[in-house]
Simulated scan of single mutants.
Amino acid sequence: MKAVFFSIAIILCPLLLVGCSTETMVLLDEEISKVNISKSKGFGEMNEDIILTFNDTKSLETFEKAITTAVKQSGKVNVSDPEYDIMVAYKSEKGALPTHALHLWLGMENEKSIFTYMMDETAYYTSPEMTNKLRKLILSDENS
Score class of each variant (00 low, 15 high):
Lys2Ala: 09
Ile8Pro: 07
Ile8Ala: 09
Ile11Gln: 04
Cys13Gly: 12
Leu16Cys: 07
Leu16Phe: 08
Leu17Cys: 12
Gly19Asn: 12
Ser21Met: 09
Ser21Ile: 06
Glu23Gly: 11
Thr24Ala: 11
Met25Lys: 04
Asp29Trp: 01
Glu30Asn: 08
Ile32Ser: 01
Ile32Val: 14
Ser38Gly: 00
Gly44Ser: 03
Met46Val: 14
Glu48Gly: 08
Ile50Gln: 10
Leu52Gln: 03
Leu52Trp: 00
Asn55Asp: 15
Ser59His: 00
Leu60Phe: 06
Phe63Met: 03
Phe63Asp: 01
Thr68His: 06
Thr69Asp: 09
Lys72Arg: 10
Lys76His: 09
Val77Asp: 11
Asn78Cys: 05
Asp81His: 05
Asp81Ile: 07
Pro82Leu: 07
Tyr84His: 06
Tyr84Leu: 12
Tyr90Met: 02
Glu93Gln: 09
Glu93Gly: 12
Leu97Thr: 00
His100Met: 12
His103Asn: 13
His103Arg: 03
Trp105Ser: 01
Leu106His: 08
Met108Tyr: 11
Ser113His: 02
Met119Ser: 13
Asp120His: 07
Asp120Met: 07
Glu121Cys: 13
Ala123Arg: 01
Ala123Glu: 08
Pro128Gly: 01
Glu129Phe: 07
Thr131Gly: 04
Lys133Asp: 10
Leu134Asn: 01
Ile138Lys: 08
Ser140His: 07
